[in-house]
Measured scan of single mutants.
Amino acid sequence: MTEYKLVVVGAGGVGKSALTIQLIQNHFVDEYDPTIEDSYRKQVVIDGETCLLDILDTAGQEEYSAMRDQYMRTGEGFLCVFAINNTKSFEDIHHYREQIKRVKDSEDVPMVLVGNKCDLPSRTVDTKQAQDLARSYGIPFIETSAKTRQGVDDAFYTLVREIRKHKEKMSKDGKKKKKKSKTKCVIM
């Protein structure tokens, strides 16, 4: 069974824990209790493949930012979460993405942009803004509501699919490099 290491990042209060708990335990946590770091595991079937999701729910508070490099190193894919009623959390996505790329030393890291709290009427981040940002990053965008469960499975499952595509691409690139290195030079 394939294991996928997913990391949920975003500013404090955007609903990272609520999304994760909704996926794992099928219930909505409405009281806000700032996370330092929590880890969850769940076995699911995605596109006919049974897999184990190892999900790291991270601290959004700035005082825990020193811990970010460590979990970013171990993560295979990242859910970059903002709240649709919090423009600052949307603007912060850029910083999370840049930090992930720096730590992973790669421009090509599996990510999904997630606009959470889409059940709320007080939207300050337009869907088109988020779609445009995701398009500019070359990553999928999904709106979710941890409260109603809308888009929750889709967000995590899409990230797994992005990781699969990335692994497939990397193995193809690896095979191309191996083929090239088999060419021999004969000096007579």
Rank of each mutant, 00 (worst) to 15 (best):
F78I: 01
H94M: 07
H27I: 12
I142N: 05
I84V: 13
V160P: 03
A155N: 03
K180D: 15
E162A: 07
D132Q: 05
S136M: 09
Q129H: 04
R135M: 09
P121D: 14
D57K: 00
D69H: 03
T127N: 11
S145D: 15
V14P: 13
G12R: 03
T58Y: 00
T158L: 09
E98M: 08
K165P: 03
D47M: 09
D126K: 11
K172A: 07
T158I: 09
E76N: 03
V8N: 05
E107Q: 10
V9M: 06
Q43R: 14
T58I: 00
I100E: 01
A18K: 05
H94Q: 15
V29H: 07
A134M: 07
L79G: 01
A18D: 02
Q43E: 13
D47A: 09
A83F: 02
I24V: 07
K184G: 12
T58W: 00
D54P: 03
V114M: 07
K88L: 13
V81W: 02
D38L: 00
Y64P: 00
G151V: 13
I21R: 06
A18Y: 01
M188K: 13
E31L: 13
K147N: 02
E31S: 06
E143V: 05
V114G: 01
S89Q: 05
G12H: 11
G138E: 12
T124P: 10
G115K: 04
R97G: 10
P34S: 03
G60I: 00
R68W: 01
G15K: 03
K101P: 01
F156E: 02
Y71D: 01
Q61K: 06
Y71P: 01
L133A: 08
V45N: 15
E49F: 05
K16Q: 02
Y71A: 02
G75N: 05
V7R: 09
E37Q: 01
Y137L: 11
L133V: 07
K104A: 13
I100L: 14
V125T: 09
H166T: 12
I84S: 14
L133R: 10
Q43Y: 08
L6Y: 06
K182G: 14
C118H: 13
Q129M: 07
F141R: 06
E107Y: 06
D153L: 07
Q43H: 09
R97H: 12
D153K: 06
P121Q: 10
V45G: 12
T50L: 14
D132P: 10
V103W: 08
A83N: 15
K104T: 10
R161W: 13
L52G: 13
G15A: 02
Q129W: 10
F78C: 01
K184M: 03
S17V: 01
D126V: 07
K16L: 00
E3H: 07
H95E: 06
R102K: 15
R164S: 09
L79T: 03
M170I: 03
A66Q: 06
E62Y: 03
M170F: 12
A134F: 06
A11Q: 07
L56H: 00
I187M: 13
I24D: 12
K16R: 00
Q22I: 08
L52I: 10
M170E: 15
I36G: 01
I36R: 00
E98Y: 03
K101T: 13
K167A: 08
I55G: 01
V152F: 11
Q70H: 09
V109H: 02
G77A: 14
C51R: 10
E91G: 08
I21L: 15
T87H: 06
T58L: 00
Q131I: 06
L120E: 11
L133D: 07
R73W: 04
I100G: 01
G75S: 04
T20K: 00
G151T: 07
D132R: 05
K180E: 05
D47N: 09
D69Y: 02
K184N: 09
V14A: 11
E31K: 04
D126W: 07
K42C: 08
K16D: 01
D126Y: 10
Y4S: 12
Y64T: 00
K167V: 06
D119I: 11
E162F: 05
L120P: 15
L23S: 13
S65T: 05
R68V: 00
D69N: 03
L6P: 04
K172L: 08
V29G: 05
E168P: 13
V45I: 09
K42Q: 14
N116Q: 14
A83H: 13
L23F: 11
K167G: 04
K175M: 12
P34T: 05
H166D: 11
A83P: 14
F90G: 10
I139H: 08
K5Y: 01
D108V: 08
Q99G: 03
A155P: 07
A66F: 07
E37C: 00
V114N: 02
K5G: 11
K128W: 05
C80Y: 06
T183R: 11
V152D: 09
H27P: 02
E62S: 04
G48S: 10
E62H: 03
Q99M: 15
T127E: 06
G48V: 06
D153I: 07
P34I: 03
T35W: 00
M67F: 02
K16P: 01
V44G: 12
V8T: 09
T35N: 00
E162I: 10
A18G: 10
I93R: 04
K176D: 13
Y64E: 00
A155L: 08
A83L: 05
D154N: 07
K128H: 05
V125D: 11
T20H: 01
K101I: 09
A130F: 13
T87S: 09
K128M: 06
I93L: 06
E49P: 11
S106Q: 14
C80S: 04
K167N: 07
K169T: 14
L6E: 01
I139N: 04
C80V: 05
D153H: 06
K167D: 09
I24P: 00
V29A: 08
K165M: 04
P121A: 11
L159E: 01
T58V: 02
V112S: 01
K5S: 09
K117E: 13
K165Q: 07
A130W: 14
Q22P: 01
A18H: 04
G138N: 03
T158E: 12
E62C: 03
V45T: 13
V81E: 12
T87P: 07
V112F: 06
T50Q: 15
H94C: 15
L19P: 00
K42G: 04
A130T: 10
P121G: 12
G138K: 04
L52V: 12
I24C: 05
F156C: 04
K172V: 11
G15H: 04
A83R: 07
M67W: 00
H166G: 09
L52H: 14
K172R: 07
L133E: 07
K88D: 15
D47V: 04
A18F: 00
T35P: 00
F78N: 07
G48D: 10
D119S: 11
S106L: 11
F141L: 11
L79S: 01
K88N: 11
T127Q: 04
V186S: 12
E168L: 04
L120K: 13
K5F: 02
N86S: 09
F90A: 13
E37Y: 03
L120I: 09
Q150S: 15
H95S: 14
V160H: 06
G12P: 05
Y4D: 08
L113Q: 04
I36K: 00
L79N: 02
S65N: 03
K176T: 14
Y137N: 11
F82M: 08
Q70P: 02
D69K: 01
A130H: 08
R68E: 02
C185G: 14
S181L: 14
E107A: 11
S181V: 15
G75K: 01
C80P: 01
V9D: 02
S39G: 15
Y32W: 09
V152S: 12
G12E: 15
Y64F: 09
Q22Y: 04
G12V: 05
Q61W: 01
T20L: 05
D30V: 08
D108K: 13
F156A: 03
V81M: 13
P140R: 08
G75I: 01
D30T: 14
R102M: 11
D54Q: 03
I100M: 07
M72D: 00
E168C: 04
S171R: 04
K104G: 04
V103R: 04
F82D: 04
V81N: 05
N26I: 03
C80A: 05
P121E: 12
V14D: 10
S106M: 15
A66C: 15
G151A: 05
L56I: 15
M170K: 07
D173C: 14
L52C: 12
T2H: 13
K101L: 12
I55D: 00
